[in-house]
């Protein structure tokens, strides 16, 4: 059993093509990848929005002044 179809490299490399595991599931892997990408944007977007909203009201005046002085 081999996940990429090869159990030995005793082969003529001219005859060898793809050697990654789970060949035949490429479309499924891409769907998983796209979901991961879109999901990341969603999580980051929601989190940043909440964070900025919270940050609007949490600025300590003295600390903000100190930040401005730091340049």
């Amino acid at each position: 059993m081999s996940t990429n179809g090869y159990t030995s490299w005793a082969v003529d490399l001219a005859e060898v093509g793809p050697i990654y595991p789970f060949q035949g599931y490429e479309v499924l892997m891409v769907i998983v990848g796209v979901v991961f990408w879109i999901g990341w944007h969603r999580i980051q977007f929601v989190r940043e929005g909440e964070h900025l909203e919270k940050a609007r009201h949490t600025g300590d005046e003295e600390k903000v002044k100190a930040q401005l002085e730091r340049y």
Partner: peptide
């Protein structure tokens, strides 16, 4: 938001 811009994004 302007408040965040003033205090700086790193602080926020």
């Amino acid at each position: 938001p302007e408040e965040v811009e003033l205090q700086g994004l790193d602080y926020a």
